[in-house]
């Protein structure tokens, strides 16, 4: 099913410049793979070459960070809002 994905400023240029895009999928992994399929400029920025969640981004289903749910296997249901934000860290 299609869900809305909110993109951070940094990724918007690679996805047509919009804040929100629509992608299909029943898990976060499917949604992100379809997102990258539709917007190849996002390749390597959201998922790693091996298909894992990139450590420089945080992905949320509604209010929850998927790293604390079932990661890429986290189910997505109709009406869920997916958000991607940069992971902010340093020393």
């Amino acid at each position: 099913m299609p869900v809305e994905v909110r993109l951070p400023t940094l990724l918007r240029p690679a996805a047509g410049g919009t804040t929100t895009v629509t992608a299909e999928g029943s898990t976060i992994g499917e949604v992100l793979r379809n997102l990258v399929g539709a917007h190849p400029g996002l390749a390597g920025q959201v998922l790693t070459e091996k298909g894992a969640l990139h450590r420089f981004v945080n992905v949320y289903v509604n209010d929850d960070d998927v790293r604390y749910l079932e990661q890429l296997e986290t189910p997505v249901t109709d009406g869920d809002e997916i958000s991607i934000l940069p992971a902010v860290a340093g020393g």
Partner: peptide, 15 residues
């Protein structure tokens, strides 16, 4: 004292 990580949930709320 040497590293920081912004809490992702608080980042989402702030955003």
């Amino acid at each position: 004292a040497k590293l920081y990580t912004v809490d992702p949930k608080e980042h989402l709320r702030a955003d």
